[in-house]
Design a protein around this nucleic acid. Structure first.
Lengths: 167, 167
DNA sequence: TTTTTCTTTCAAAAAGTATTGAAAGTTTTA
DNA sequence: TAAAACTTTCAATACTTTTTGAAAGAAAAA
């Protein structure tokens, strides 16, 4: 497998992986392309390399910036914008965890609070209450663990401790 | 919010959550319904409660069984099949982790092995090699961590240790 | 064996999601 | 100010995924 084939395979694999996890395939492909590009790319570059339209490129590059995975670079004497990706994959993983926690876990807390208020003496009510209480405790645990993981990334000690644990 | 409203809200929330994570919405809704049902339900029950077709019900119940989240129950003197869900949400989470690891991480290893073979002296080649090597190490770390987590579930000591850590 | 009851399959239709490309918007340059 | 160079928007279109329902299959009952 030569470089060109490798690049294509990586872009396609990352795209498939993304769509398995509820992330737009093109968004993941642009991310992959930027991850393996040594220099920041313009919208035009991305359009050409992935053979996608201008609109599609623009939308997905912005989404990637929203996720905190891609940044703009302003080149002196250049009018157009260039984009580059965070390339430290541990940081990428932490950023994704952080964002999904914010976007999905946080709204869930509100819903769980509402659902925990339901009271009903029937068998169905009992099962409902018990499932909700149990789920709530698992969600709370997951949240604490993810928080610990993300914070570890910002603390030298925990960072090393975790890396040791995962050896 | 009364029981009926709570049940509907839970089913809808679980469905949305599932589809955010690349899981068929209906599959997640059937799972939610079974999670809050004290008794095992027949295909007919599921069809009625979620207002979906027989084919859809059958396909998604089977998918849930494939995931190891739902089981068949044979009732004495009853011809049709009944279905119930594992209700311990910690076990549910572990089962999902286990399955996704098997379905997605394992095939990834093969691809990474191929991609690691690419050698190219150009700047693009250098960035490609470095991104792939870094990604490979993060994936390997994640895999070890998930393995630890799943195994912990089966070990009394690690189970208690982890629960303590996540306090 | 035939009928009944239930499960499974799958092609067609519907619903949902992503993509295009042209037009409008914005910023810089002349 | 006007033109040029680029970015953003969005309605129409294309594509993907899900759902339906009728038919076929299977197992139990008559």
């Amino acid at each position: 497998m030569n470089l060109q084939e490798g690049r294509e395979k990586f872009i396609q694999t990352w795209g498939t992986l993304g769509s398995n996890w509820g992330i737009n395939r093109t968004m993941a492909q642009i991310h992959a392309l930027l991850l393996i590009s040594p220099e920041a790319l313009s919208a035009e570059d991305i359009m050409e390399q992935l053979k996608i339209s201008r609109g599609n490129t623009n939308m997905n590059v912005r989404a990637l910036m929203d996720w905190g995975l891609v940044f703009k670079e302003l080149k002196a004497g250049e009018r157009r914008e260039f984009f580059y990706a965070e390339k430290d994959m541990w940081k990428v993983a932490m950023q994704v965890v952080k964002e999904r926690r914010k976007r999905e876990l946080e709204p869930l807390f509100g819903t769980m609070t509402d659902l925990k208020k339901v009271k009903d003496a029937s068998a169905e009510g009992q099962q409902f209450e018990s499932t909700i209480a149990n789920l709530d405790s698992v969600i709370a645990k997951a949240d604490k663990t993810l928080d610990l993981l993300v914070k570890a990334d910002e603390s030298w000690f925990m960072n090393n401790f975790l890396k040791l644990m995962m050896k």
